[in-house]
């Protein structure tokens, strides 16, 4: 099945799962009608909860989904959908208070009925989820703590909201209506259980060993992993995996990294990781022989997904590993397709893979265009950020037919997307992967 067809099927399923819980409430005998505003408030609450529930699907790292949609777009969608869910759920009590101001006293948990307090707790838990996600970096919340907060508060938000609904018992009076909503909650919790229990168990049975660890230019390390007691997995060049290093796969410390090795070679996996954050700054200290758990492959950022007459790879700094995976795979497959690699870095000393790229130029129909912010003396290459003029200077006349892959930090991706629009590249030919997506 084509990727576009799969995307449409997923979207149809998404809107069905989103609307079905609301429609269920309107089938069969309904409770006595009340004022419009009160019914609207209740409907918004139900809608918000249905949208919250659907959020379990995009974030569950389900491979049929991650292999179809770009993961950074999925997270982009997830955060904004959660904001919409929060707005809908917040509108539920606000509308009630607006049309019945005396109901504000229900905010006092000491005097309010427990079913109302449950609703309030759910709303506050959702607010905490959103605040810790949007302001994780300004609040200096570590990635692990943020994930722990997410893992705990997500089921709390949903279960407590469900108890609130069952406690109010207005629309869910028929057993089968209760059954649908409780069934949905069970499915949502099942996805969490899959992520936290069955998936780690499967990873535990399929460990990898670190067989080599070597420093690269640009303060990066290449880790070479070999499957231990199993065959490993096949992947498309450019895909990524979640790595758990020196930790239990049941813990919070897994991190997404692009696979850098060729998809056409052995079942060894290579990851090239720059020393950037807390976790990655100690990546070179991981001893050879250590067990690593690899949850993958994920992602659709690949020449195998988006074929074309030629490829343009545009990377900023440590956005280069997926590009290397694609170039190494093209070399191993003896590809004759033309390729261009625009590679932005602060300075020459920080260019990871620079020697190997020179070799790849001999083996492929490849042009490598280095763009340095602080070039050395006598540098005759490109300088500054990758922009429309630079792209025009190096790309052929049929540049609108080529397929583009961009990977790097979000500001760099945004700037390159604008430059590609400027030179008339159709958006459908452009694919992006943000390396700091979570």
């Amino acid at each position: 099945m084509k990727a576009a067809t799969k995307q449409w099927l997923w979207l149809l399923l998404y809107f069905f799962v989103l609307l079905a819980p609301l429609i269920v409430l309107l089938i069969g005998p309904r409770p006595a009608p009340r004022e419009f505003w009160r019914e609207l408030s209740v409907a918004l609450g139900f809608s918000g909860l249905a949208l919250m529930g659907v959020q379990f699907i995009p974030t569950a790292r389900l491979r049929p989904l991650t292999n179809v949609f770009p993961m950074d777009d999925v997270y982009y969608f997830h955060l904004r959908a959660a904001l919409i869910a929060f707005a809908l759920v917040l509108a539920h009590p606000l509308i009630l208070f607006l049309f019945n101001p005396t109901a504000v006293r229900l905010l006092n948990p000491l005097t309010a009925p427990p079913r109302i307090t449950l609703g309030l707790v759910s709303l506050l838990a959702l607010a905490a989820l959103i605040v810790t996600s949007i302001f994780r970096k300004p609040l200096k919340i570590s990635y692990e703590l943020w994930r722990l907060v997410h893992v705990i508060l997500t089921p709390v938000t949903i279960i407590v909201a469900m108890l609130h609904m069952l406690g109010v018992d207005y629309y869910l009076s028929l057993p089968w209506q209760r059954g649908v909503w409780i069934g949905l909650t069970v499915v949502w919790m099942g996805i969490i259980a899959h992520n936290r229990l069955t998936k780690p168990l499967r990873l535990l049975r399929r460990p990898y060993r670190l067989v080599d660890s070597k420093p690269e230019t640009g303060r990066a390390w290449t880790l070479v992993l070999r499957p231990d007691g199993h065959e490993g997995f096949r992947f498309m060049p450019g895909q990524f995996a979640w790595l758990t290093i020196q930790r239990s796969p049941f813990g919070m410390r897994s991190h997404p990294f692009s696979i850098a090795s060729s998809a056409a070679s052995s079942n060894q996996l290579q990851f090239t990781i720059a020393e950037l954050g807390d976790f990655t700054s100690r990546i070179g200290e991981v001893p050879v022989g250590e067990v690593v758990y690899v949850d993958g492959p994920h992602g659709s950022f690949s020449i195998d997904r988006y074929d074309g007459p030629g490829y343009v790879f545009i990377a900023g700094g440590i956005g280069s590993p997926p590009m290397l995976s694609m170039l190494r795979t093209m070399r191993d497959r003896r590809s004759h397709k033309p390729a261009w690699f625009f590679y932005g870095n602060p300075e020459w000393e920080s260019v990871t893979f620079r020697e190997e790229l020179e070799t790849l130029k001999q083996e492929l129909d490849l042009q490598v265009i280095h763009a340095l912010e602080r070039p050395p003396a006598q540098w005759d290459g490109e300088t500054g950020f990758i922009d429309a003029d630079m792209l025009r200077r190096h790309l052929p006349d049929n540049r609108n037919e080529l397929v583009y892959f961009i990977c790097g930090p979000q500001p760099m991706i945004a700037a390159v997307l604008a430059a590609l629009r400027q030179i008339g590249v159709p958006p459908n030919n452009v694919h992006t992967e943000q390396y700091d997506m979570v």
């Binding site: 989103l18 609207l40 809608s47 949609f69 777009d73 982009y76 809908l88």
Partner: peptide
């Protein structure tokens, strides 16, 4: 699917839920 498509799905989600909530309230209110 790209960022533009993701934006479209977000807007469709918002509009679908707002409209269906309105329809729900209209159907159910007196």
């Amino acid at each position: 699917m790209g960022r533009t498509h993701a934006r479209v799905v977000i807007w469709l989600t918002f509009l679908t839920l707002m409209l269906s909530s309105l329809a729900f309230a209209l159907l159910q209110s007196r």
